[in-house]
């Protein structure tokens, strides 16, 4: 999709779970997003690539409703995020997982309590055994079953990221937004996180938007890559297509 076109809910690529049309967001005189268009198809891993400070995190925070757009519309599962009531937005958020760059684990709670927190708030009918089973399944998914009674401060960076990923997945969201999932991790741990992203994607059939400027992460996880430049979706395509591009702006990322 070239810049300037608007995204539609249905096209030849299949059903769209997120459609963003003409999104604008400014902070004072800093126009971070300027008529940004994007669509995320069902069961697709879409990587949004861009330089630091280009507005990638702002984009996904607008999608989840943490930031209010100045203009444009964000349609998630057919709902315009900006028009939802507080309660409707909370319900929609249970369908969307968000992995923070800083992990954002609740530091006053154990790992188990971190994972139980969303379950207890939305799935009231679950018995303690069912909660325990779901927590253990989530921890086993990230190979950290032994950490359930640990505090976040006792975890390494890679472990904290995996626990945050387990918490993100515990409500079985249909869409996951990853904010720079491998930033600040050593290469080996970063590859482990990428593998987990792909494993969970296959297991739960999720659709994902992955924000990154780590080219290894982009290459390993992306079905499609969108390049965010000057507040717009400059271009998009498969990793291989963009890698071969002769465009100067695109080449900067692949050199």
């Amino acid at each position: 999709m070239e810049h300037g076109q608007t995204a539609e809910m249905n096209d030849s690529n299949g059903e769209a779970v997120i459609v963003i049309n003409g999104l604008c967001k400014s902070f004072g005189n800093n126009h971070v997003l300027n008529n940004f268009n994007l669509r995320l198809n069902s069961k697709e891993n879409l990587v949004v690539l861009g330089r630091s400070g280009s507005g990638k995190s702002v984009l996904i925070k607008c999608i989840i409703g943490l930031l209010k757009p100045d203009d444009g519309e964000i349609i998630v599962f057919g709902n315009n995020v900006d028009e939802l009531s507080h309660h409707e937005l909370d319900m929609l958020r249970t369908e969307i997982g968000f992995l923070f760059q800083s992990n954002a684990l609740y530091d006053s709670m154990t790992v188990r309590e971190n994972l139980e927190f969303p379950l207890r708030r939305h799935w009231f009918e679950l018995s303690q055994k069912e909660v325990d089973d779901m927590v253990m399944e989530a921890l086993d998914n990230v190979n950290l079953g032994h950490t359930s009674e640990m505090m976040p401060a006792e975890l390494s960076g890679g472990m904290a990221k995996r626990i945050a990923l387990a918490r993100t997945m515990i409500l079985r969201p249909k869409v996951i937004l990853y904010d720079e999932p491998t930033t600040g991790l050593d290469p080996i741990t970063a590859r482990e996180i990428e593998s987990l992203i792909l494993k969970l994607h296959d297991k739960y059939q999720t659709s994902s938007i992955i924000i990154s400027h780590d080219m290894n992460c982009v290459k390993n996880t992306a079905d499609r890559v969108a390049l965010l430049l000057d507040g717009k979706c400059y271009t998009e395509g498969s990793f291989e297509d963009l890698e071969k591009s002769e465009d100067e702006h695109v080449k900067q990322f692949f050199e």
Binding site: I64, L66, F98, F100, A104, L105, Y106, P118
Partner: peptide
């Protein structure tokens, strides 16, 4: 201090995106 710390480490945002007010 507690809420300030939660704010700067995005724990309040994490609570919000998990559908908890």
């Amino acid at each position: 201090a507690e809420l300030g710390s939660m704010k700067v480490t995005e724990q309040i945002d994490a609570m919000e995106v998990s559908g908890t007010n």
